[in-house]
Write a protein that binds this DNA or RNA. Structure first.
Length: 424
RNA sequence: GCGGGUGUCGCCAAGCGGUUAAGGCCCCGGAUUGUGGUUCCGGUAUACGUGGGUUCGAUUCCCAUCACUCGCCCCA
């Protein structure tokens, strides 16, 4: 055992490998919190009749081009795309496209309506990382297919709000808007252009491009002068009189009515349009002021055309996705699960049997494996925060006994093992 | 793609031209080889991101580069 000094004669310095930019190792305290939140999601969604779906982390690039939209930043500059043979594949930048693809491919349109699904998993976007934004991030999403009712929108929104309430998230605000159908937006375009035209010269470059390509998107421009233009009285009243069809307005009113009845606070935001192409009618976003620049925890809306666009039968749908990293940033400290028993022992076979029995009764039990002295083992037990220590040494093993010590009070008693297991 | 900030042991953190490069936490051992949390003593580690330059001498100054981080764009 005389080594250490001589063992590295040439000093081959290994280069360390770090995780790729914008990725995260999730472990330790964090993973406990993640698992807690994930199981809370699962429980709540399952209790409401939503079923998990797991789709591939990569899909044919074309799915996202058609699903998310060719005009979006996501497909234009943020996708991880690679080629294998003559196939173009992309890491999924969001979850809905894959779920819809599966819905169509697996014939879920023949299932009884509505079809209610949820998913959770990593998504990938090639972007510059910053607070609340990474290249691999995690979303939990909910999708409801086959119904075009206000109640469907309301349920989906309610699922998100209740989840966040349970988690006690601070400073949340639900913003909601109605952006109508593509037909509504056609009408909107020409009218809106008329209203904005006089101001065209003052607008930013982006807005002037969008004036031609996608006027609706002009509304969520962050540029102050542009915002000021869109806030001018005539434009504002134009927006607020609602450019959408009667059907859309009735639908939206229905959603609002339910939210009001449930006393769910929201803010109608006429400028909320969202960056994905597939939305129709209801769109919404849940933001928190505790988040920094990227302040949306959850976003979603109705997408009545997407299933059709991806080759399925005409099927209305609503859904949302939440960002786990952003959500976790808002979730405070969670109660930790204490260690119920720590078994101090040099009789491992006996100790394992006891541990099995206790774990079978849902106790959290750790057996000391070190072979060190009992003093050291007790030290370890205290460090781990165990409530009670069970000691099984040679004498106890022989007599079918154990010593049980409460680490808070310091009291210790001897029990017959069988009796202990019966009454614990 | 474009701006700002930061890089000293696993973590926090002093030093700002000449030091054996503090200290704390964590970890390990001992006091206490079948009974802990407190305390005391001791110990481990290729720690100055990397490469150049200035200097008799750079962790300290300059340049570059990389990484991380915050923001813009956009989104979860």
């Amino acid at each position: 055992m005389a080594n250490t000094q001589e063992s590295t004669p040439t000093k081959t310095r290994k280069e360390t490998l770090n995780r790729p930019k914008g990725t995260q190792d999730i472990f330790g305290n964090d993973i406990e919190r993640w698992e807690y939140v994930e199981s809370l999601c699962r429980l709540q969604f399952q209790n409401a009749g939503y079923q998990e779906i797991r789709t591939p982390a990569f899909e044919h690039t074309e799915l996202f081009e058609r699903g998310v939209g060719e005009g979006t930043d996501i497909v234009n500059k943020e996708m991880y795309t690679f080629e294998k043979g003559d196939r173009r594949l992309s890491l999924r930048p969001e979850g809905t496209a894959g779920v819809v693809r599966s819905f169509v491919e697996q014939g879920m349109s023949r299932w009884p309506k509505p079809v209610k699904l949820y998913y959770m998993g990593p998504m990938f976007r090639y972007e510059r990382p910053q607070a609340g934004r990474q290249r691999q991030f995690h979303q939990v999403g909910l999708e409801l297919f086959g119904l075009d009712t206000p109640a469907a929108d309301a349920e989906v929104i309610l699922m998100a709000m209740r989840l966040f309430q349970k988690l006690n998230l601070p400073n949340l605000s639900l913003e909601i808007n109605n952006i109508g159908t593509p037909e509504c937006r056609e009408r909107f375009k020409s009218n809106f252009r008329q209203h904005v035209e006089p101001h065209l010269a003052t607008l930013c470059e982006d807005c002037r491009t969008r004036y031609n390509t996608n006027p609706l998107r002009m509304l969520d421009c962050k540029n102050p002068t542009c915002k000021a233009v869109y806030a001018e009285p005539d434009i504002k009243t134009f927006l607020e009189t609602d450019f959408t069809s009667e059907d859309c307005q009735v639908h939206f009113a229905g959603v609002i009515q339910i939210l009001d009845a449930l006393k769910i606070p929201y803010r109608r935001n006429f400028y909320l349009v969202r960056g994905l192409d597939y939305y129709t009618k209801t769109v919404f976003e849940i933001t928190s002021t505790n988040l920094g620049a990227q302040n949306a925890v959850c976003g979603g809306g109705r997408y009545n055309r997407l299933v059709e666009d991806l080759g399925g039968p005409e099927t209305p749908a609503v859904g949302w996705a939440l960002g786990m990293e952003r959500l976790m940033a808002l979730v405070g400290e969670l109660p930790k699960r204490d260690l119920d028993f720590y078994i101090v022992t040099d009789q491992h076979a006996v100790a394992f049997e006891l541990a099995d029995a206790l774990r079978g009764q849902d106790y959290k039990v750790d057996v000391d494996l070190s072979g060190k002295g009992f003093g050291k083992q007790f030290e370890r037990a205290a460090k781990l925060g165990a409530r009670q220590v069970i000691t099984i040494g040679e004498a106890e093993a022989q007599n079918g006994e154990l010593k049980l010590k409460n680490l808070q009070t310091g009291e210790q008693f001897t029990h017959k093992t069988a009796a202990f297991l019966d009454q614990v």
